[in-house]
Amino acid sequence: MKKSSLLPVLLAAVVLVAACQKSTHAPSPDVRVVSRTSLPADPNDPAWSTVPVHVAPLVLQDMVEPRLIQASTAQVEVRAISDGSRVVFRLSWADGTKDDSVRPAHFSDACAVQLPAKVQTDVPAPQMGEAGKTVEITYWKASWQASVDGRKDTIKEVYPGAAVDHYPFEAASLPTDSDAQKEMALRYSPARALGNTMAGPRKKPVEDLIAEGPGSLTPAPAGTSDGKGLRTEKGWVVVLSRAMPAGLNSSGRSQVAFAVWEGSHEEAGARKMRTGWVPVVLEKKS
Protein backbone atom coordinates (compact mmCIF):
# COMPACT_ATOMS: atom_id res chain seq x y z
CA MET A 1 0.00 0.00 0.00
CA LYS A 2 1.30 3.44 -0.87
CA LYS A 3 1.85 6.12 1.83
CA SER A 4 -0.82 8.36 0.29
CA SER A 5 -3.48 5.68 0.54
CA LEU A 6 -2.43 4.73 4.12
CA LEU A 7 -2.99 8.20 5.58
CA PRO A 8 -6.82 8.24 5.50
CA VAL A 9 -6.89 4.87 7.20
CA LEU A 10 -4.60 6.05 10.00
CA LEU A 11 -6.64 9.19 10.49
CA ALA A 12 -9.82 7.18 10.69
CA ALA A 13 -8.20 4.93 13.27
CA VAL A 14 -7.17 7.90 15.43
CA VAL A 15 -10.71 9.29 15.31
CA LEU A 16 -12.13 5.89 16.26
CA VAL A 17 -9.79 5.52 19.25
CA ALA A 18 -10.62 9.03 20.43
CA ALA A 19 -14.33 8.28 20.21
CA CYS A 20 -13.93 5.06 22.21
CA GLN A 21 -12.04 6.81 25.00
CA LYS A 22 -15.07 8.94 25.75
CA SER A 23 -17.13 5.85 26.45
CA THR A 24 -17.17 4.28 29.92
CA HIS A 25 -16.69 0.92 28.18
CA ALA A 26 -13.41 1.87 26.56
CA PRO A 27 -10.42 -0.06 27.87
CA SER A 28 -8.56 1.88 30.53
CA PRO A 29 -4.74 1.87 30.59
CA ASP A 30 -4.83 1.32 34.33
CA VAL A 31 -7.26 -0.27 36.74
CA ARG A 32 -9.63 2.49 37.82
CA VAL A 33 -11.42 1.77 41.08
CA VAL A 34 -14.74 3.55 40.88
CA SER A 35 -16.36 4.86 44.06
CA ARG A 36 -19.86 3.71 44.87
CA THR A 37 -21.92 3.73 48.04
CA SER A 38 -22.68 0.04 47.81
CA LEU A 39 -20.57 -2.83 46.57
CA PRO A 40 -21.93 -5.34 44.06
CA ALA A 41 -21.54 -8.88 45.37
CA ASP A 42 -22.72 -10.52 42.18
CA PRO A 43 -20.74 -10.70 38.93
CA ASN A 44 -23.90 -9.86 36.97
CA ASP A 45 -24.84 -6.81 39.01
CA PRO A 46 -25.86 -3.95 36.63
CA ALA A 47 -23.46 -1.65 38.48
CA TRP A 48 -20.57 -3.27 36.65
CA SER A 49 -21.78 -1.99 33.28
CA THR A 50 -20.92 1.57 34.27
CA VAL A 51 -17.36 0.81 35.33
CA PRO A 52 -14.36 1.20 33.02
CA VAL A 53 -12.71 -2.00 32.00
CA HIS A 54 -9.00 -2.67 31.97
CA VAL A 55 -7.89 -5.44 29.65
CA ALA A 56 -4.80 -7.06 31.08
CA PRO A 57 -2.77 -9.25 28.73
CA LEU A 58 -1.52 -12.38 30.46
CA VAL A 59 1.99 -13.73 30.11
CA LEU A 60 3.51 -17.09 30.95
CA GLN A 61 4.86 -17.63 34.44
CA ASP A 62 8.28 -18.63 33.18
CA MET A 63 10.48 -17.04 35.82
CA VAL A 64 10.73 -19.89 38.33
CA GLU A 65 10.40 -23.66 38.13
CA PRO A 66 7.97 -25.21 37.66
CA ARG A 67 7.28 -22.97 34.71
CA LEU A 68 4.41 -22.82 32.27
CA ILE A 69 5.79 -23.48 28.81
CA GLN A 70 2.70 -23.18 26.63
CA ALA A 71 0.48 -20.12 26.90
CA SER A 72 -3.22 -20.58 27.58
CA THR A 73 -5.52 -17.75 28.69
CA ALA A 74 -4.69 -14.64 26.66
CA GLN A 75 -6.17 -11.87 28.77
CA VAL A 76 -8.37 -10.98 31.68
CA GLU A 77 -10.82 -8.10 31.82
CA VAL A 78 -10.80 -6.22 35.10
CA ARG A 79 -13.26 -3.83 36.69
CA ALA A 80 -13.16 -2.48 40.22
CA ILE A 81 -15.50 -0.69 42.63
CA SER A 82 -14.85 0.58 46.15
CA ASP A 83 -17.05 1.98 48.91
CA GLY A 84 -14.10 3.50 50.72
CA SER A 85 -13.48 0.61 53.10
CA ARG A 86 -13.48 -2.34 50.75
CA VAL A 87 -12.75 -2.92 47.10
CA VAL A 88 -14.31 -5.42 44.75
CA PHE A 89 -12.54 -6.61 41.62
CA ARG A 90 -14.48 -8.23 38.80
CA LEU A 91 -12.39 -10.51 36.64
CA SER A 92 -13.68 -12.12 33.48
CA TRP A 93 -11.85 -14.26 31.01
CA ALA A 94 -12.52 -16.68 28.19
CA ASP A 95 -12.26 -20.37 29.05
CA GLY A 96 -13.67 -23.08 26.83
CA THR A 97 -13.71 -25.76 29.52
CA LYS A 98 -15.36 -25.69 32.92
CA ASP A 99 -12.94 -27.27 35.36
CA ASP A 100 -14.42 -27.08 38.82
CA SER A 101 -13.24 -30.28 40.45
CA VAL A 102 -9.84 -31.52 41.52
CA ARG A 103 -8.72 -35.11 41.28
CA PRO A 104 -5.62 -36.92 40.05
CA ALA A 105 -4.33 -35.07 36.98
CA HIS A 106 -7.37 -32.80 36.95
CA PHE A 107 -7.12 -29.23 38.13
CA SER A 108 -9.52 -26.42 38.92
CA ASP A 109 -9.86 -23.14 37.08
CA ALA A 110 -8.87 -20.26 39.34
CA CYS A 111 -7.88 -16.61 39.47
CA ALA A 112 -6.18 -14.25 41.86
CA VAL A 113 -5.62 -10.57 42.59
CA GLN A 114 -2.31 -9.50 44.10
CA LEU A 115 -1.39 -6.18 45.76
CA PRO A 116 1.63 -4.95 47.72
CA ALA A 117 1.07 -5.14 51.47
CA LYS A 118 2.75 -1.76 51.99
CA VAL A 119 3.12 1.40 50.00
CA GLN A 120 6.76 1.77 49.12
CA THR A 121 8.65 3.40 46.32
CA ASP A 122 10.33 0.14 45.40
CA VAL A 123 7.47 -2.24 44.68
CA PRO A 124 7.80 -5.96 45.41
CA ALA A 125 8.67 -8.33 42.60
CA PRO A 126 5.46 -8.94 40.64
CA GLN A 127 5.89 -12.73 40.80
CA MET A 128 4.75 -13.43 44.38
CA GLY A 129 6.69 -10.57 46.00
CA GLU A 130 10.08 -10.96 47.64
CA ALA A 131 11.72 -11.23 51.04
CA GLY A 132 10.76 -8.23 53.16
CA LYS A 133 8.29 -7.03 50.54
CA THR A 134 5.09 -8.88 51.22
CA VAL A 135 2.27 -9.15 48.73
CA GLU A 136 -1.36 -9.82 49.59
CA ILE A 137 -3.29 -12.21 47.38
CA THR A 138 -6.99 -12.92 47.11
CA TYR A 139 -7.46 -16.29 45.42
CA TRP A 140 -10.64 -17.75 43.96
CA LYS A 141 -11.01 -21.35 42.89
CA ALA A 142 -13.79 -22.89 40.82
CA SER A 143 -13.83 -26.12 42.86
CA TRP A 144 -14.36 -24.10 46.03
CA GLN A 145 -17.17 -22.23 44.31
CA ALA A 146 -18.80 -25.57 43.52
CA SER A 147 -18.48 -26.53 47.19
CA VAL A 148 -20.06 -23.25 48.30
CA ASP A 149 -22.80 -23.70 45.71
CA GLY A 150 -23.82 -27.01 47.24
CA ARG A 151 -21.59 -29.79 45.96
CA LYS A 152 -21.64 -32.49 48.62
CA ASP A 153 -18.55 -33.59 50.44
CA THR A 154 -18.57 -37.16 49.16
CA ILE A 155 -16.51 -39.14 46.71
CA LYS A 156 -19.63 -39.78 44.64
CA GLU A 157 -19.69 -36.10 43.70
CA VAL A 158 -16.27 -36.60 42.13
CA TYR A 159 -16.82 -40.12 40.83
CA PRO A 160 -20.56 -40.84 40.52
CA GLY A 161 -19.89 -44.53 39.88
CA ALA A 162 -17.78 -45.00 43.00
CA ALA A 163 -18.75 -47.85 45.29
CA VAL A 164 -17.42 -47.73 48.83
CA ASP A 165 -17.98 -50.66 51.17
CA HIS A 166 -17.32 -48.91 54.42
CA TYR A 167 -15.59 -46.00 56.09
CA PRO A 168 -14.38 -46.34 59.68
CA PHE A 169 -16.45 -43.32 60.66
CA GLU A 170 -19.55 -45.20 59.57
CA ALA A 171 -19.11 -47.82 62.28
CA ALA A 172 -22.36 -48.61 64.06
CA SER A 173 -20.81 -47.62 67.38
CA LEU A 174 -20.39 -44.02 66.21
CA PRO A 175 -23.65 -42.01 66.32
CA THR A 176 -24.33 -39.92 63.23
CA ASP A 177 -22.91 -36.38 63.44
CA SER A 178 -21.45 -37.11 66.87
CA ASP A 179 -18.11 -35.70 67.94
CA ALA A 180 -16.77 -39.24 68.07
CA GLN A 181 -17.76 -39.77 64.44
CA LYS A 182 -16.17 -36.50 63.35
CA GLU A 183 -12.98 -37.37 65.21
CA MET A 184 -12.83 -40.74 63.47
CA ALA A 185 -13.28 -39.07 60.05
CA LEU A 186 -10.44 -36.67 60.80
CA ARG A 187 -8.11 -39.54 61.61
CA TYR A 188 -8.17 -40.45 57.94
CA SER A 189 -8.09 -36.88 56.70
CA PRO A 190 -4.86 -35.39 58.04
CA ALA A 191 -5.05 -32.20 55.96
CA ARG A 192 -8.43 -31.39 57.49
CA ALA A 193 -7.26 -32.38 60.95
CA LEU A 194 -4.45 -29.84 60.59
CA GLY A 195 -6.82 -27.12 59.43
CA ASN A 196 -5.29 -26.87 55.96
CA THR A 197 -7.36 -24.25 54.17
CA MET A 198 -7.18 -26.28 50.96
CA ALA A 199 -8.89 -29.26 52.51
CA GLY A 200 -12.52 -28.13 52.47
CA PRO A 201 -15.42 -28.25 52.60
CA ARG A 202 -15.56 -24.52 51.94
CA LYS A 203 -17.71 -21.72 53.29
CA LYS A 204 -16.10 -19.18 50.95
CA PRO A 205 -14.81 -19.70 47.42
CA VAL A 206 -11.86 -17.38 48.11
CA GLU A 207 -8.84 -17.32 50.37
CA ASP A 208 -6.61 -14.51 51.69
CA LEU A 209 -2.92 -15.26 51.25
CA ILE A 210 0.38 -13.53 51.69
CA ALA A 211 3.72 -14.22 50.06
CA GLU A 212 7.30 -13.01 50.16
CA GLY A 213 8.55 -14.68 47.02
CA PRO A 214 7.89 -17.86 45.05
CA GLY A 215 7.23 -20.85 47.27
CA SER A 216 6.33 -18.78 50.33
CA LEU A 217 2.57 -18.57 49.86
CA THR A 218 0.83 -18.68 53.25
CA PRO A 219 -2.76 -18.14 54.40
CA ALA A 220 -3.18 -14.64 55.77
CA PRO A 221 -3.64 -14.49 59.56
CA ALA A 222 -7.05 -12.90 59.24
CA GLY A 223 -8.90 -13.25 55.97
CA THR A 224 -11.85 -10.98 55.27
CA SER A 225 -12.11 -11.52 51.54
CA ASP A 226 -15.10 -13.00 49.86
CA GLY A 227 -16.22 -13.58 46.33
CA LYS A 228 -18.37 -15.32 43.83
CA GLY A 229 -17.73 -16.88 40.48
CA LEU A 230 -20.19 -17.58 37.71
CA ARG A 231 -19.72 -19.79 34.70
CA THR A 232 -20.84 -18.21 31.42
CA GLU A 233 -20.98 -19.60 27.91
CA LYS A 234 -17.58 -18.11 27.18
CA GLY A 235 -15.75 -18.54 30.42
CA TRP A 236 -15.74 -17.25 33.97
CA VAL A 237 -16.85 -14.04 35.65
CA VAL A 238 -15.61 -13.69 39.21
CA VAL A 239 -15.92 -10.96 41.80
CA LEU A 240 -13.34 -10.78 44.57
CA SER A 241 -14.04 -8.54 47.53
CA ARG A 242 -11.26 -7.57 49.90
CA ALA A 243 -10.29 -4.93 52.44
CA MET A 244 -8.99 -1.66 51.05
CA PRO A 245 -5.35 -2.18 50.10
CA ALA A 246 -2.64 -0.10 51.70
CA GLY A 247 -2.07 3.16 49.89
CA LEU A 248 -5.15 2.96 47.79
CA ASN A 249 -6.83 6.05 49.17
CA SER A 250 -8.20 9.13 47.51
CA SER A 251 -4.80 10.48 46.58
CA GLY A 252 -2.93 7.25 46.25
CA ARG A 253 -1.88 5.00 43.46
CA SER A 254 -0.83 1.48 43.91
CA GLN A 255 -0.07 -1.60 41.86
CA VAL A 256 -2.13 -4.67 41.23
CA ALA A 257 -1.42 -7.92 39.46
CA PHE A 258 -3.63 -10.73 38.25
CA ALA A 259 -3.29 -14.42 37.55
CA VAL A 260 -5.48 -17.01 35.89
CA TRP A 261 -5.19 -20.78 36.06
CA GLU A 262 -6.68 -22.96 33.30
CA GLY A 263 -7.52 -26.29 34.88
CA SER A 264 -7.73 -28.26 31.66
CA HIS A 265 -4.21 -27.10 30.87
CA GLU A 266 -2.99 -28.67 34.14
CA GLU A 267 -2.24 -25.28 35.60
CA ALA A 268 -1.77 -25.02 39.36
CA GLY A 269 0.56 -23.17 41.66
CA ALA A 270 3.41 -21.62 39.75
CA ARG A 271 2.10 -22.94 36.42
CA LYS A 272 -0.18 -20.05 35.54
CA MET A 273 -0.80 -17.09 33.26
CA ARG A 274 -0.09 -13.80 35.00
CA THR A 275 0.34 -10.08 34.57
CA GLY A 276 3.11 -7.82 35.79
CA TRP A 277 2.19 -4.91 38.03
CA VAL A 278 -0.64 -2.80 36.64
CA PRO A 279 -1.24 0.73 38.00
CA VAL A 280 -4.42 0.94 40.06
CA VAL A 281 -6.05 4.28 40.83
CA LEU A 282 -8.90 5.06 43.17
CA GLU A 283 -11.18 7.57 41.54
CA LYS A 284 -12.34 10.43 43.71
CA LYS A 285 -15.96 10.40 44.76
CA SER A 286 -18.06 12.37 42.37
Binding site: R103, P104, A105, M198, A199, A268, G269
Partner: peptide, 23 residues
Protein backbone atom coordinates in the same frame (compact mmCIF):
# COMPACT_ATOMS: atom_id res chain seq x y z
CA UNK B 1 -1.64 -26.99 48.31
CA UNK B 2 -2.28 -29.87 45.96
CA UNK B 3 -0.28 -28.81 42.90
CA UNK B 4 0.45 -32.50 42.15
CA UNK B 5 4.00 -31.72 41.09
CA UNK B 6 5.17 -34.51 43.40
CA UNK B 7 2.76 -36.97 41.80
CA UNK B 8 4.25 -36.10 38.45
CA UNK B 9 7.87 -36.27 39.56
CA UNK B 10 7.91 -39.44 41.68
CA UNK B 11 9.03 -42.15 39.24
CA UNK B 12 7.55 -44.85 41.50
CA UNK B 13 4.17 -43.06 41.61
CA UNK B 14 3.98 -43.40 45.36
CA UNK B 15 2.49 -39.98 46.05
CA UNK B 16 -1.28 -39.85 45.68
CA UNK B 17 -3.60 -36.90 45.28
CA UNK B 18 -6.59 -36.85 47.62
CA UNK B 19 -9.55 -35.37 45.72
CA UNK B 20 -11.49 -34.68 48.91
CA UNK B 21 -8.81 -32.71 50.74
CA UNK B 22 -7.04 -31.32 47.69
CA UNK B 23 -3.67 -32.40 49.06
Amino acid sequence: RGYQECVKACPYKKVFFNPMTGT
